[in-house]
Computed example of a mutant assay.
Amino acid sequence: MAHATRTPRPVTGRTVLITIVAFFGVIIAVNLTLTVFALRSDNGLVVKNSYVASQNFNRNMAEARAQEELGWRLAAIRENGELIVRLHDRDGIAVEGATVTAKVGQPGDRAR
């Protein structure tokens, strides 16, 4: 049985143009899609100046470990338009006399 040999198609200017337009079209489409997702999602802003925050990292971690060792649990509920915060120790007993400081605000992206 004889095999038919095919001659390769020549690369023309039209083929190169279509390939380049398709390549860059995919790149641009992916970039636009990722940009839209990034702009619509949470910006992840936690601190205004990460360098300053990094200087306090060890102290903040020590405070967090000390808080974990206390075993305190916080429950916050909303009743009749008021925010009620309850603080209990690891045995479920209410913690008396503790000062709770809270900052209520909007998410990091103020455009929402």
Rank of each mutant, 00 (worst) to 15 (best):
N43W: 01
L83R: 04
F37M: 15
S50I: 12
R6S: 09
N49Y: 06
R86W: 04
R73N: 09
T7C: 08
T35L: 06
E63W: 00
F24Y: 11
N31S: 13
G108T: 02
S41H: 09
A64H: 06
K103Y: 14
L87D: 02
E79Q: 08
V30E: 12
G44P: 00
F37I: 14
F23T: 15
T33Q: 07
G81E: 09
P8G: 05
Y51W: 10
V52G: 03
Q106R: 11
R6N: 10
A4I: 13
I20G: 05
S41M: 05
R78M: 09
N56G: 09
G105W: 02
Y51I: 07
S50Y: 07
A53T: 02
A38H: 10
L34A: 08
R112F: 04
R40Q: 15
A94V: 11
N43G: 10
A75Q: 08
T19N: 06
A75P: 03
N56S: 13
K103D: 14
G97I: 01
D109K: 09
L87T: 00
I28V: 15
G105P: 01
L39F: 04
T15S: 12
I93G: 13
V46C: 06
S50A: 15
A62P: 00
A29H: 03
I93Q: 15
I18H: 12
F57D: 13
V11Q: 07
H3W: 06
T15I: 10
A102M: 15
T15C: 06
L74Y: 05
A2M: 08
D42K: 05
V30H: 10
T99Q: 11
R78N: 11
G71D: 03
E82P: 01
T33E: 13
T5A: 07
R73Y: 00
D89M: 00
G105T: 06
R6Y: 10
V104D: 09
V85T: 08
V21H: 02
N58Q: 14
G13Y: 02
I84L: 06
V26G: 01
V36C: 12
R73W: 01
N43D: 13
T99Y: 04
V100I: 07
K103V: 12
M61E: 14
A62D: 07
